[in-house]
Design a protein around this nucleic acid. Structure first.
Lengths: 111, 111
DNA sequence: TTGTTATATAACATTAATGTTAAGTAAATC
DNA sequence: GATTTACTTAACATTAATGTTATATAACAA
């Protein structure tokens, strides 16, 4: 979990987040992806490269086309990282509850 | 899920990721956090502000100290976003499987 | 009250990210 | 085989992020 920030960096751009959400519908070519954005196609190509490097999408070759699809790798890593931290947090609350429960009733009950 | 990239931007820096992982152990003051990093205290203060704005940490006031702790809000949002995409992806595979299963056996079985 | 500790804010330099256009390659179509 | 389509790569300008030091504020300790 030491390189997590690379994955997050890939997701830190609104265009790239939107691309991933488009791909939730299934595979799309570079042009399919580019059209809805007010941005040149080379710009989209570079966003796709960033997403691919972060293992968030995969690209296959189909003639002159390069269809893109979501990749499980990056997404699972992301989910696990968030889950891990959220659970640590919960454990801390439990520990705090235990400490409070162990305190003398006077401290605990007086309003 | 339209502002997700703000959360990701907050996590796109290695120092900020490391800070969150430190906070998994529980609440820490600004100085507690700053010491292990080869970086000035003002730099850490600004990282903390970014994390707070993204609802990834909370800060309370304790005299001159400002203890920081993980906040569930951002982390849950993160987890849910990743889960949503991963599930869409799985649904797409299922749909593809259905299409393949509906194909004539000749296409499916011939090696 | 005076000094010290804990933190925030401001001003600034450096670096990296994002977009643009122009040019390059390789497959598809006429 | 010439043109068009699909995409990548390169060169460049602009903007934003990150760090630094200096300075401000507020609580604490002597």
């Amino acid at each position: 979990m030491e390189e997590m920030h690379r994955t997050f960096a890939a997701l830190s751009d609104p265009t790239r987040c939107a691309i991933l959400e488009m791909l939730a519908d299934g595979e799309k070519t570079v042009m399919d992806i580019a059209v809805p954005f007010a941005m040149s196609q080379p710009a989209i190509s570079r966003h796709l490269k960033v997403l691919e490097d972060a293992a968030l999408i995969t690209r296959r070759i189909d003639g002159a086309k390069r269809p893109c699809a979501l990749s499980p790798a990056g997404l699972e890593q992301l989910e696990q990282w968030a889950t891990k931290l959220r659970k640590s947090m919960a454990r801390n609350y439990d520990r705090l509850d235990a400490v409070l429960a162990a305190m003398p009733p006077v401290e605990k009950d007086t309003p």
